[in-house]
Structures are given as structure tokens and as C-alpha cells.
Nucleic acid binder design. Sequence first.
DNA 1: CAAAGTACTAACCAATTAGTTAAACTAAAC
DNA 2: GTTTAGTTTAACTAATTGGTTAGTACTTTG
Lengths: 227, 227
Amino acid sequence: MHPTPATPAAQATIRRILETAVEAFAEKGFAGARMDEIAKRAKVNKATIYYHIGNKAALYSAVLHETLGQRADLFIETVGRGRTPEEKLRRYVRCIVENIMRYPSLPRIFMREAASLGAHLPPQTATDLGRIIGVLTQTLAEGRRAGVFVAATPVLIHFMIVGALGYYAQMESVIQRFVREAAVDHPPAASFEASAKEIEDLVVNTVRAVPVTAIARPIPAEKGDRS
Amino acid sequence: MHPTPATPAAQATIRRILETAVEAFAEKGFAGARMDEIAKRAKVNKATIYYHIGNKAALYSAVLHETLGQRADLFIETVGRGRTPEEKLRRYVRCIVENIMRYPSLPRIFMREAASLGAHLPPQTATDLGRIIGVLTQTLAEGRRAGVFVAATPVLIHFMIVGALGYYAQMESVIQRFVREAAVDHPPAASFEASAKEIEDLVVNTVRAVPVTAIARPIPAEKGDRS
DNA sequence: CAAAGTACTAACCAATTAGTTAAACTAAAC
DNA sequence: GTTTAGTTTAACTAATTGGTTAGTACTTTG
């Protein structure tokens, strides 16, 4: 960012650039997004981006801070207010849902970031993400101690949530395309809120400890049982 | 592809190109992957790629056919051999696991593809993917009718599986990076096979109908079947 | 008013990149 | 040994792209 304080008009310009950039990066990825295109769609001269924000990497970093990094504290605080592990887990999912509703392009950016093993991920964002997953780790451990959750790797659960929500946030279209072309039976697109609720329930189900008597054991464990 | 029949030597060249291209596309995405780089790493002249396969889009298409499209039939057949819905579901997960073990880069490509709403996805691949998800749809419906599964959207379940496995196939490194930078408690990286088994169990748990009291009749285990 | 700082732009540049061409090489067939 | 079809390459081009520069308009300050 430019060191000097921005005037209200400049703030609006910056905001417009960032909003356009989020979409561009989500749509085409870091390599695919074009500075010229972003400038054009934000209705500013390309040099204005370089003046206010910096080069492509700086723009990407600014986008991620705006959409994710800034909100880590809120995440942690909100989840912490839950009383039971299940309530905390539901709050966790809902925090992610709300953030995605605010920034629908974020999961797409994030999916690409994961695919490139964090190649363009700014250090600050990596730290923020780690803190967010940290609160899930605590929640799952708490539920495990209380006997209401099974053992599950927190990062895995996190990415199951983000992955599933991400697909539903903006990817229903491609799903419908798959389905149409393959003539497969598939329910029509549900609203994002409805899908989010389904995912919330599924996630809780995923980690819920099942009464032993109800568990079928179709495939005997070979080397060492897992709980 | 070039219309004329390829000699064994040329076949090897094509294979080398495709193998290199898979990695390049996974690493950098469609836009980020460079034809020059692929040629260099495959130790062929760039024009050789254009001679044998075609332009960038054709190369991408060939890669996806090789790693996914070709295998749709095997998927469907293997899952179909499962006797109970749970066994079919487990087979489904294992099919995906085995394919990822064979092509570890595939989930990364696929994650990007989802993020771009299938922008570069060849029609044939979309169809094949739809057929694969179709067999999951049938399995889930079957389990629902039998009262052993809860209602769940097939596509959602599919992408939960692929997403979670994808992260574990090659993304453990970035996870460890998050964790390190945030000083969060996180178990050390497990083997992919172990993670795959965890995911298989979690997925089954995800769709399992929870007994209201203790009424659920477990599915009888079937001995001797292991694949 | 003038001096200075901020916000923005048109035009430009150097480097990169997908894609092409024509020539050269290889190995088997005649 | 020559031909021929298939394969590979060095060199090139046309277009794109990230980034820069010099200059302009507007606003604030002395």
C-alpha cells in the first residue's frame, strides 16, 4: 500500500480495485488474472493500481487480507462464545458460511491457493489461517475429551467444510453442467443458505461419536484398530 | 492428437509430455503453466508437443482424459460390485484414493478447475465426471431407501471426498506451514494411506443414519471381500 | 497566488509467451 | 544406396503482459 494517507475519494478507488481484483483472481487465478483487465473493469488506469497498492503480488496480498486475514479475530471470538463443543463446531461452520456469503469469491481463490501449495500465499494470511484452524483444533479436542466427538484431524475437517461450501457458493453451475451432460439424476440447485445448513449438519454428523452398538463393521480392521 | 499412428518411440515421447504436463498444470494451473517449461522438463522441443498433441487446450484435455476420463468405466464397475450401500460407498472412496495415488497431481488440477467453474474443462471430461458422480448418487439413494444413510447431496459428498483427499495427497506441506507459523497444535503428517482410511471412515460416518435410540439394525459384515 | 503534495492517466517498454515454419534427422522399406 | 514417412529441432514471429515514466488535474497549504 501507498504510505501516504488516502483521501476518501482514493479510499473508494482502492476499494473498487480490490473488489474487482477478488473476482479476477477467483475467476482466473493468480497467473491468469490480468492487471490490464482488473484496471479496465475497476475503471481506473492500470498505473493507479501500482500507485495505490503495488505490483501483482501486493494486490493479491491486499485482497487476501481484506477477505480473510482481517477476520481471524472475529472468528476466534465468535466460536469461543459457544458453550458445548457441538455449538462451537456449528458456530465455526457458520462463521465460514457468513464470510463466504460476504466474499463469495474467497473459496475459489483459496482452492487455487491450496492447489499451488500456497505458492502466492502471503505470510500474514498463512498465520491468520493457522489461528482460525487453531480454534477448530481446540473445539474438536474438547468434544473428544467429553466423549461426544470421534477423533478427527482438524485441518482435514476444516478443508472438508471450506471445500464443500466453496463448491456450493459459486460452483453449482458447473455441477449442473456435469449432471446435464451425463444425464444423471441430481436435485435442482438449492439456495446457498440451505446448502450451508446441510453442510453444518453433515459436519456435526461427521465427527459425532456413534454408539458402539449401532456401528456396523463390514470390513475388519487389519493392522490396529482406529477409533 | 496427430492422426497418423505413432511409433513406440513416439508413444514414449507422448507419455513423457503428458506426465510432465500433469505436474505443470497441477503446480501452476492452466494459465500459469508454460509450454516452454513443459517442453524443457519433458526434454522435448516445444514444437514436438504441437506436432503430437496440439495447442495448450488440447494438451490440457489430453492430460485430463489420461488421468480421469479413461477411468470412469472402471470406477462404475468396481463400485457396482459392492454388495451393501456402505461397501459401495467405501469402494467409491477407495477408487478415488487409488486414482489419486496413481496421479497425485489430479486433485490439484481438479480443484483449480472447480474454482474456475470448469472454464477449461473439456466436454468429454465433464461427461465422464458426471457418470462417476452418478454411481455415487445411486449408492446414496440405495442406502437412504434401506434406512442406513441420511439424505445427502451426492455432488456435495463427492467433493468433500475429493477435496479432503486432495489436500492430503500433496498439500500436507502447506498445512504444516500454516501450523508452524501459527504455533498451533497439529499432529505430524500421516501417510497418505492412513489419511485415506481416516477419510473413508469419516465419509461413512457423514452419511450414516444415527439411530434415534438404539433401533438401527447394523449391516451384517461381509467376510472375505477386500479390494 | 504559488508552492507542494496527492490522485490519476496516456503512452510506452522490455520481457515473456503461445504458436509456426522449414529444415534436419531417423529408421525402415524398397 | 535411395526413398519415404514419421519424428524432432532451431529459429522465428506476432501478440500479450507486468511494470514504468513523464506528465496532468485537483486539492491543500502557506
